[in-house]
């Protein structure tokens, strides 16, 4: 009944590591690319060592003057996304549901993955943290955040379909992003539905549960992690950094 162990755990682990490796390599290439810039306005470009970016970012974040404190930016502008709220409450609602849903599910999956690995290694965990028990405990929050994510995605799709401005300005780059999100969410619902025979299982036989779950996990890992540095998902990392570097922005 537990989430992962029905699908081959080895396969899962291998895929997870491949995804992490792809993510790290992609991040490395991006940071290398950014490091081709200079360390300050009007200075010569640097040699491209990844230290350059990290140093420049830290220096800029720490520089005094114009702008708000680090913590204000972190809480109000990154976590609560105040800048979007100021502009459009609807877009803020869409963004915050996707953000919160995504982050929560990501953290839940990490938790599950961690307890399963710990169990596998043979370390005994307190009862509440046994994979099966934890899975049951998390089932409700899992559902809640999945629906939150789904609401955000539906708003995003509807905006793109029905608001002409948004539709006309959508390019493949945006569609791949939204498409990926949609597939992850829907496969999550379906694999869960098959497993517990609920609505989202669409009556698919139980025996398909493990491969369905595997499919969901693989594509989540690929989209949620591996694909980030190579795509529009990169803004999930770069935008918060930009906000920090510019002390909350103008």
């Amino acid at each position: 009944m537990d989430y992962y162990s029905n699908i081959s755990f080895t396969v899962m682990t291998v895929i997870a590591f491949i995804a992490i490796a792809m993510f790290l390599y992609g991040m490395f290439t991006n940071i290398k690319k950014w490091s081709l810039g200079s360390t300050g306005y009007g200075l010569e470009p640097s040699n491209g060592s990844i230290i350059v970016f990290i140093k420049t970012l830290i220096t800029q974040i720490r520089k005094e003057g114009h702008g708000q404190p680090f913590l204000t930016t972190f809480v109000l502008d990154i976590l609560l996304q105040r800048r979007i709220l100021r502009r459009s409450p609807l877009r803020w609602f869409m963004h915050i549901t996707i953000f919160v849903g995504w982050m929560a599910l990501f953290v839940f999956s990490l938790m599950m993955f961690a307890v399963e690995i710990i169990e596998m290694i043979g370390i005994s965990l307190p009862h509440a943290l046994h994979p099966e028990v934890l899975r049951d405990t998390m089932s409700l929050p899992n559902d809640v955040f999945s629906y939150i994510l789904l609401v955000g995605i539906i708003i995003a799709i509807v905006r793109r379909l029905f608001i002409s401005d948004v539709r006309e300005n959508t390019i493949a780059y945006d569609s791949v992003f939204l498409g990926g999100l949609t597939i992850i969410t829907i496969t999550g619902f379906i694999s869960d539905g098959i497993r517990n025979g609920g609505f989202w299982g669409f009556g698919i036989v139980d025996s398909t549960a493990p491969p369905a779950a595997l499919f969901h996990v693989v594509i989540s890992l690929l989209f949620c992690l591996a694909y980030i540095p190579y795509s529009k998902y990169m803004h999930m990392i770069a935008a918060p950094l930009a906000l920090l570097a510019n002390k909350g922005g103008e």
């Binding site: 970016f53 970012l57 770069a238 935008a239 930009a242």
Partner: peptide
């Protein structure tokens, strides 16, 4: 990358469109 700082190059990737 003349005249662009490392942080500015990152900002290019920060646009959420």
């Amino acid at each position: 990358t003349n005249n662009l700082t490392a942080v500015q190059l990152m900002e290019i990737d920060a646009c959420t469109r």
